[in-house]
């Protein structure tokens, strides 16, 4: 699938398409199985992340119905057997972790809602201020913020680990010293994670190197 199609699909999921773009992408579904598969993947993965039962409901038709001003009450399921996912709740699960996992789900769930609601609004002239507007434009600021957060949760780009509690023994160090020390520590973590890779044999390139503390803390790079 081309990058342009990927971008369009991503924008559709983000609720960032205007009506014409929505129609264009959805029309391609019928002739482009890759695009349709990618759309299905987005929703399947999103459902797993939200720990909710997964069903392979085709939202695209519902969106098209909304654009055409038809009721969306009967969104048809795909002909194949629905995939269901059960979520195990064990004794080890506690309230805090549950709430964290569900929080990301609640936010992400708003995206699907935003696409559907946005599509309705996009068709409803009374909801627009005279110009052609996309779904994202008719959402308020808080919805947009939630949407952005949800999308970042689904399409995480960063490989940077999330930092949790930090203990510093030398309390009188400068912020710059602390920053450098943390970067070096991060580098050690990455090296540990890649311990299975031995790049030093037979002259193969070095993929991971340890930064010189406080002076050379760039990201590990391949040396061809």
């Amino acid at each position: 699938m081309t990058d342009r199609k990927n971008e369009s699909l991503s924008a559709l999921c983000d609720g960032e398409c205007d009506e014409l773009e929505v129609r264009r992408v959805l029309n391609q579904f019928s002739s482009d199985p890759d695009l349709r598969e990618q759309w299905r993947r987005y929703h399947l993965l999103g459902s797993i992340m939200r720990e909710e039962p997964v069903s392979s409901i085709d939202l695209s038709e519902g969106i098209m119905q909304a654009l055409d001003g038809e009721p969306m009450d009967e969104v048809p399921a795909r002909s194949q057997t629905p995939v269901e996912t059960s979520v195990a709740h064990t004794a080890a699960d506690n309230k805090r972790s549950r709430s964290q996992w569900l929080m990301s789900g609640a936010v992400a769930a708003s995206v699907t809602l935003a696409v559907l609601v946005g599509a309705r609004f996009a068709y409803d002239p009374s909801a627009l201020d005279g110009s052609m507007s996309g779904a994202a434009l008719v959402m308020n600021d808080s919805q947009s913020a939630m949407e952005s957060e949800a999308i970042s949760a689904i399409t995480v780009a960063a490989n940077e680990p999330v930092v949790e509690p930090l203990t510093v023994a030398n309390a009188d160090i400068s912020a710059e010293e602390l920053r450098k020390a943390q970067e070096v520590l991060s580098q050690y973590v990455l090296e540990h994670e890649n311990e299975a890779i031995n790049a030093n044999e037979q002259g193969l390139p070095t993929f991971v190197r340890v930064a010189n503390f406080g002076a050379d803390n760039k990201t590990a790079v391949r040396k061809d």
Binding site: V162, L166, T167, V168, A169, V189
Partner: peptide, 16 residues
């Protein structure tokens, strides 16, 4: 440099 201890979810790291 400083002695540090830090945790990235499942991964912990310490420097002394």
């Amino acid at each position: 440099g400083p002695d540090l201890t830090r945790r990235w979810h499942a991964t912990s790291a310490t420097v002394r």
